[in-house]
């Protein structure tokens, strides 16, 4: 079932991809026998039969995950998206501190240790990366004047 769902979604994407390749992509003028549309056409024609085969003979029935595991993966995804969202506005130190604290807490660390871990990673990570390795990291609006 899981295999079929994924393959079904892929099939829709692949059909759209192939349709665009055949109907929309076109160079205004070209000298070569193969234009920008030929390669995607070939790929689409290979992908669709492969997907149909998976639909016809799926070999993974389900994800075999229990509810708590689903919840943990879901929470991780939300945390990562939130981390990406606040990375620039809050700056590396603060966003990393919060992210590390919450994730290690979720994975079973004690609150005090998780907090310490967050602070060390955020602060030490920032200074090691920006000062020592000269990488570019966001300082964040709050800290622009300070750092």
């Amino acid at each position: 079932m899981a295999d079929r769902l994924f393959a079904g979604a892929l099939l829709i994407v692949a059909i759209a991809y192939t349709y665009i390749a055949f109907a929309i992509l076109k160079a205004p003028f070209q000298y070569d026998p193969l234009g920008p549309e030929s390669w995607p056409q070939i790929l689409g024609c290979v992908a669709i039969p492969c997907i149909l085969y998976v639909l016809w003979r799926p070999d993974v029935a389900s994800f075999d995950l229990e509810m708590p595991t689903w919840a943990r993966v879901g929470a991780l995804f939300v945390l990562l998206m939130a981390y990406a969202w606040v990375f620039q506005p809050l700056g590396f130190i603060l966003s990393t501190l919060i992210f590390c604290f919450l994730l290690s807490l979720m994975l079973g660390a004690k609150p005090l240790k998780a907090g310490l871990f967050g602070i060390v990673t955020g602060v030490a990570g920032y200074f090691v990366c920006t000062r020592l390795l000269e990488l570019n990291l966001p300082a964040g609006k709050l800290f622009v004047g300070l750092l």
Binding site: L103, S104, L107
Partner: peptide, 25 residues
Amino acid sequence: QYLTPLIAVLAFIGVYSIVSNPHDL
């Protein structure tokens, strides 16, 4: 529980430090 968040932080540092585009995150 400490190793896992570090992987995410390293990945974010790596991607952000190249093009500084939050869209990539």
